[in-house]
Simulated assay, not measured.
Amino acid sequence: MGARSPRLEALEALVLRGLEVAPSQVWGGVRIVPLLRKEIRQDLRLAKRSYGEDVMAVSLDGELLAPGIKYVSYVPHGLVVSWSTNGTAAAAFGTHLQARDGRRFGKGPSTVRVAHRMARREDKNSLRLLPLHLAMEGFLALHFGGPEVAWSEYSRRALSTGLDPRWEDAVLGSWIPGLDDALRVFEIHERQVGVLLFVAEALASAFVVPHPDDYRALHRTLLEDFYGTLIVHHGLHATTSRTEASIDDERVSSLADLRQGLAVMRAEWAAFHDEMSNGLLGKEVRSERIYRAGPFQLQRFATNLSPSEENHIGEAIVRETGELEYLKTFRLSAAQTRRAFLLSQLASQNWNLDATAVLLRHSKDELIRRLERSGFDYLLKEHVLQAARRRH
């Protein structure tokens, strides 16, 4: 990929630059907002690579089967990114799909694929990435190393292996009531390259690709993406309001009036959807640059992880001029946000429990109990936990 270009900066806020919002379509509790690309280019394309294994283990460091850090999950498909560096059309759609990608083990009903890296370069102008897993791996790796000082409260395991293992729960999009039907019956616009997906008016995911043909091929992969369990709960127990926008026919007496009315209606829809998605779009994010591919940059990001706000993680490909070419996001649950926030506060105080308790305005025992409720009890010695329980 080469050295990082000084022209390409990390994301500071997530903006749908180069895209426009179309009126949403509603099915039960599912609202899908189409995203249309203003200028269609050919120099960046995405293709799907399907996997048939039950589990994928991704080696994040070292050789494929050597000891080291591994990310393990169900990975139904990857994305192959192809690009050109001079503005000409990228390689033909799908030409890289048969490239070897890791090794497959097992026979019959249980199989495992072992792959190397979340984003792996395959040739001069193509890259394979594991969508959403790139973002989730970064989230799981947040302060993964654990305490760097041998504080007396931490277990031997925490001091030697940090947060290993670290895990989070998610479910497939096919579990969300109504999503399959919505994707099947909703209209795909001519210039559509993405969607904002709402379930019971909660923003569940944003998905953007470079080209309309790519979107048509990847439209139903939203069922294979993973989502928070709260989104499934919303789908089971809530419905979506039907907010209508219309043109006042009494004000239409010419084609110019009709165009003006249509422009006003589209502006009203855009404002409505901007308000619904303000927990993600336009919000400050912390991003990490992963790869540079000519005039494009692959990044992963997270919002500020404040427990009192809506939070998302995701990945994006941004053109050097600022246009958003690829986007995929995952909405964190309140519990996931609290865990990440707690780890960040510990890390900011060098994992000192007393200092972190003061920062959070807790007693030390309250902080220990909070760590236990968050699933991090294995970081602390058993007698420390027991003493905090007794005093509580």
Score class of each variant (00 low, 15 high):
7 R>M: 02
14 L>G: 14
19 L>A: 13
22 A>S: 00
23 P>K: 12
25 Q>T: 13
31 R>H: 00
35 L>P: 05
39 E>P: 02
45 R>L: 13
46 L>G: 14
51 Y>A: 08
54 D>V: 03
55 V>I: 12
64 L>C: 14
98 Q>A: 12
107 K>C: 08
110 S>E: 14
116 H>E: 15
124 K>V: 02
124 K>S: 10
132 L>K: 00
140 L>K: 01
155 S>K: 04
165 P>W: 10
168 E>W: 00
169 D>Q: 09
172 L>S: 11
172 L>F: 05
175 W>A: 10
175 W>M: 07
177 P>K: 08
180 D>A: 08
187 E>N: 13
190 E>M: 14
197 L>E: 13
203 L>K: 13
204 A>D: 09
205 S>R: 11
212 P>Q: 12
216 R>E: 05
217 A>T: 04
225 D>H: 11
230 L>E: 15
231 I>R: 00
236 L>A: 02
239 T>P: 03
241 S>P: 08
242 R>S: 15
247 I>Y: 15
276 M>H: 09
276 M>V: 09
282 G>M: 14
288 E>A: 06
295 P>I: 02
304 N>Y: 13
306 S>F: 03
308 S>T: 12
311 N>F: 01
312 H>M: 02
323 E>M: 13
334 A>N: 02
335 A>L: 02
352 N>A: 12
358 V>T: 05
361 R>I: 10
365 D>T: 00
367 L>Q: 03
383 H>T: 11
385 L>H: 04
385 L>P: 01
386 Q>D: 07
